[in-house]
Write a protein that binds this DNA or RNA. Sequence first.
DNA 1: CATGGTAAGCGTACGCTGTAAACATAGATT
DNA 2: AATCTATGTTTACAGCGTACGCTTACCATG
Lengths: 202, 202
Amino acid sequence: MSETAVRKTRARSAEDREAVRERLCQVATRLFVEHGEMGFSMRALATDAGCSPMAAYRYFETKEDLLAAVRARAYRRLADTLESVSDGERRKARDIGEAYVRFAEQNPAEYRLMFDLSQPDDARYPELSEAAARARWCMNKYVREMVEAGVLAGDPEVLGYVFWATIHGLIVLKLAGRLPATPDFETLRRTALGALMRGLRA
Amino acid sequence: MSETAVRKTRARSAEDREAVRERLCQVATRLFVEHGEMGFSMRALATDAGCSPMAAYRYFETKEDLLAAVRARAYRRLADTLESVSDGERRKARDIGEAYVRFAEQNPAEYRLMFDLSQPDDARYPELSEAAARARWCMNKYVREMVEAGVLAGDPEVLGYVFWATIHGLIVLKLAGRLPATPDFETLRRTALGALMRGLRA
DNA sequence: CATGGTAAGCGTACGCTGTAAACATAGATT
DNA sequence: AATCTATGTTTACAGCGTACGCTTACCATG
């Protein structure tokens, strides 16, 4: 591994281990972003991280475990992004929705990673579940506030999922190349969210 | 290959070729359904189809080509399902939406196949694009009718995508395991589509 | 200080994968 | 009868995830 050429074996503190895991996740994410899903293999990861093919297995039991960690990281980045918006002074509903869409547009590889349909059994990874829950919580926060403020009517949890599903649906259709050039994405997003807001008004 | 033990070589008519392709797609779909994405390989396909591993390459240039054909089949099945509903006497908006959801629930493997985010460049497969367009057309038909009947207001194409994205968003969240036990899917679906209908009413 | 246990990392190897290439076969065409 | 050609098989290869065993060097104990 050799993070600073010092300490070649044994005695890795917990922080060290976490730092190495973090670094491996970073490299894995970069590989995903740069070369797509197919450009990522444990061997490619090892090459890029400058270690032997089996080294990563000291930190992640399987490739799937590593990918779960990478997804958890992505969720945390998404949650951070959303939080940084809602903490600002402008907290209109649209700002959060736009921030969510922007994250997906600017980090398509990570968004794919988070929501790809072919990932098995996320429940086995508490870290992942937790990160996903936090992201969802951020998404739902503004919906909750609007219900409490009497702007929207209904169960805040139900409404949260409804808004999320709608935005997410548009994004995945776009990422899967199922949306045409016209009507453009912005139009669809505005129409969908506007209709939802009107239809759910208190 | 030997589909009925007759004709071992040469002289496969165009229909024959198409029949073999069809059979390979069927076996591939079954493998997907039964053993998940990982249970499918060209070798597994060959074993299940009773031919040598390379035989399928006479009918599909690459694995990706074969998968594109499998997806096109799935789209056609979806379109057939939707058409069979709208042709009946009951053609309330909900019937189509419910038929769509039911297809996804009863054929999760095929739905995944159609909409997985990691499929590259569908535009290269005209057959696929065509099948996808037909399915979308079926989805949009009832929206168009409602706009024409003056029930909904707006650009029918925009509205079609909006309804589609909303239902699709709910489905992929469910397939990706991102939805909780409560509120249940039916509640979310009703809330979302009800709100859209209200918000888009003429 | 010597020693043995143990954790870190490496190299090798196995059984998969997709598929390129060479080959065999048997009807159709000449 | 000889040749051509579409079909399918066999063989081969590079790359994959990862199981396994080896070496190395630290640390706790004698």
